[in-house]
């Protein structure tokens, strides 16, 4: 676990009442949970096997890249140490609890992810991330710790997979962008004044849009997770 200094997290969007959030120092896993690590969880928790999982908690794509319930598959050897994907929010949350950890909050994750890379050159953080978003996904997902390490010592915060956060459903906006702004005022509380703080941070905008489009049981090819822990939790 890597300590992440607390700080203030300023969301890329703000409303008039929305001040920067204070984030307490916390611990975050050095890299995303891998297929091998997730297999241990599935072995210990049969209700999370692919054939047994409740569709309420994981859709039909859950672990679809594995050979079978308890076998990633020899032909998949290259991804043993790659981030596990095709996992739902419920599965990620349950894994974290099994490890006596938890999912990071959105503010924690964004704060940790905003630290600059240590070992790659880039014009700006945003351009580095956008460059990754733009790339076509590789046929085989690379192993963890193969992109960059940031100044906290965290690997692959951007560049391998998107990651679930505890409050992924916290971007309050209307479900239907076709609504006129007049209608929107009644759909959600305090949402009318939403504004963007940093128009250059298009990468953050994409992440918010992506999270907004998720449901808790979605399992998709580019979405994994890593666990967090509070310092107090540790004692």
């Amino acid at each position: 676990m890597i300590p992440v200094a607390g700080g203030e997290y300023k969301s890329f969007y703000v409303s008039k009442t929305n001040k920067p959030l204070k984030v307490a120092p916390f611990l975050l896993e050095e890299y995303a949970v891998t297929n091998l690590e997730f297999l241990e969880f599935v072995k210990a928790n049969p209700q999370w096997q692919r054939s047994r999982v409740n569709a309420l908690f994981a859709d039909k794509n859950y672990l679809k890249h594995w050979e079978s319930d308890l076998d990633i598959g020899l032909s998949n050897k290259k991804i043993y140490n790659s981030p596990v994907v095709y996992v739902s929010w419920f599965a990620a949350k349950s894994y974290s609890e099994w490890k006596h950890r938890r999912l990071p909050t959105l503010a924690e994750w964004e704060l940790a992810g905003s630290a600059p890379p240590e070992n790659v050159n880039y014009a700006s953080m945003t351009s580095y991330i956008l460059n990754w978003y733009e790339k076509e996904s590789l046929p085989v997902l690379p192993n963890v710790k193969t992109t960059y390490r940031n100044t906290y010592g965290l690997y692959d915060m951007h560049g391998l997979v998107w990651e679930w956060v505890f409050d992924f459903n916290s971007f309050v906006s209307s479900g239907d962008s076709r609504n006129t702004s007049d209608d929107n005022n009644n759909l959600f509380c305090a949402g009318a004044a939403i504004n963007v703080t940093n128009r250059d941070d298009y990468a953050a905008f994409l992440r918010y849009g992506f999270r907004r489009s998720l449901k808790g049981n979605y399992c998709i090819s580019s979405l994994g997770f890593r666990c967090a822990e509070g310092f107090t939790q540790r004692r």
Partner: peptide, 30 residues
């Protein structure tokens, strides 16, 4: 423009995820 496209592609992709599958009863955390 390219990024916009990617953004909507992501949403479309996620939106196509169907939820109805075979389901065996189990609790979130037994």
């Amino acid at each position: 423009k390219k990024y916009n496209f990617l953004f909507f592609a992501v949403i479309l992709f996620v939106g196509c995820n169907n939820v109805n599958t075979t389901a065996v009863s189990n609790n979130l955390d037994e």
